[in-house]
C-alpha cells in the first residue's frame, strides 16, 4: 500500500487529480462528522480509478470535493493543476450522479444538449455533439423520447451521454449503476469500458460492488469509514481489453480477494472503535 501511494505521489507527470492530506469535516449540531481524513492520492491522465468502501467511508464525499460540490476543510486538492472551483468553472469534468436526474420536461436530446446550451455552444454544434454522444452510448433513435418513457438503464446511459457531451477530459461517476439490476449493470459496465477505451478519458468511479470495481479499474482505492480514509490502493494487473468472462480468471479473483481483505480490515477497525 505505502509502496503504491508513494510511487504515484512521486510521479511528476500530468496529474489530473492530486490530493494531499485532504480532510473534510461537517459540523453538525451533534458534533463534528469527519467525512475525510488525511487522504493522499494522485490520479494520472487516462486512469480508471474506482473508489470502494462501505457507506459512510467518504467515497462520494471525495468525488464531490473534486467536483467542488463540497469544500475541503484541510489539505490541498488540485484538479488539472487548478483549484476545484477553477476547474469547475473551466468545465473540466462531467459528473454522473446516482440517479439519472434528467429533467422530465426535456426530451432526451434536449437533456443531453443542456450543458451545451449553458456553455453557449452554437445550435449546429449542439446538434452535432448530441448526435455523436447519443451514438456513443447506443441511444440513437430515442432523441425525441422523454426520460419517463425510458427504462432506468437507458436513463442512466442518457445521463452519461449528457456528461460526455461537452467533452471534458475527466468523468466523475457516483455509483451510476447502483440502482440497476445485475444484467443491465453488466451490460453497461462493458459498454463503459469500451467508451473509456475510445474516448481516453480519466474516470473516477464510486461503487460498492467489488466485481464492478475490479472489472472496470486500472486502480482501486479502498476506503473505510469513521473517519473516511484510504486504507489501500490496488494497481490492477488485468489487461486493458477486458471481456466480461475475465471475471472468472484467477487473476481477477486474486484482485477481488485483495479488495475484500482491505474492506474487511477497515470494517474490523470500525467495529473496534465504535
Amino acid at each position: 500500500m505505502s509502496e503504491t501511494s508513494s510511487a504515484t505521489a512521486c510521479t511528476n507527470g500530468p496529474a489530473v487529480i492530486r490530493a494531499e492530506n485532504l480532510g473534510l469535516t461537517f459540523p453538525t449540531g451533534d458534533g463534528d462528522i469527519v467525512a475525510l481524513s488525511d487522504v493522499n492520492l494522485t490520479i494520472e491522465k487516462g486512469d480508471f480509478v474506482s473508489f470502494i468502501g462501505p457507506s459512510g467511508c467518504g467515497k462520494t464525499t471525495f468525488l464531490r470535493t473534486i467536483a467542488d460540490l463540497e469544500k475541503p476543510t484541510s489539505g490541498t486538492l488540485s484538479v488539472n493543476g487548478m483549484s476545484p472551483e477553477e476547474a469547475r468553472k473551466a468545465r473540466a469534468y462531467g459528473y454522473v450522479f446516482q440517479a439519472a436526474a434528467l429533467y422530465p420536461w426535456r426530451t432526451i436530446e434536449k437533456n443531453i444538449a443542456l450543458p451545451l446550451e449553458i456553455m453557449g455552444h452554437s445550435a449546429g454544434e449542439q446538434a452535432e455533439r448530441v448526435k455523436r454522444t447519443m451514438e456513443l452510448v447506443n441511444l440513437s433513435g430515442f432523441e425525441k423520447k422523454y426520460p419517463w418513457q425510458l427504462s432506468g438503464g437507458m436513463q442512466q446511459r442518457a445521463s452519461i451521454a449528457r456528461a460526455l457531451s461537452f467533452d471534458a477530459d475527466l468523468l466523475l461517476m457516483d455509483e451510476p449503476f447502483g440502482a440497476l439490476d445485475e444484467i443491465v449493470r453488466d451490460h453497461l459496465n462493458s459498454e463503459l469500458l469500451k467508451l473509456w477505451a475510445r474516448t481516453e478519458k480519466t474516470i473516477c468511479f464510486v461503487t460498492h460492488s467489488i466485481p464492478e470495481a475490479v472489472y472496470l479499474s486500472t486502480r482501486i482505492v479502498v476506503m473505510s469509514p469513521r473517519p473516511g480514509r484510504v486504507t489501500d490502493i490496488i494497481e490492477s494487473t488485468l489487461p486493458r481489453d477486458r471481456p466480461l468472462d475475465i471475471r472468472e480468471t484467477p487473476e481477477f479473483l486474486a484482485i477481488a480477494a485483495r479488495v475484500r481483505e482491505g474492506l474487511r480490515a477497515g470494517h474490523s477497525y470500525e467495529e473496534g472503535s465504535v
Binding site: A67, D68, L69, R88, K89, R91, Y93, G94, Y95, F97, Q98, A99, A101, Y103, L114, P115, I118, M119
Partner: peptide, 18 residues
C-alpha cells in the same frame, strides 16, 4: 427542484439566471 438537479447545474458552472 431536487438537490441532484441543482448540483448538476452547479457542475456546469451555470449562472443564477440559467
Amino acid at each position: 427542484a431536487s438537490a441532484i438537479e441543482r448540483d448538476l447545474m452547479h457542475t456546469y458552472a451555470a449562472n443564477n439566471w440559467q
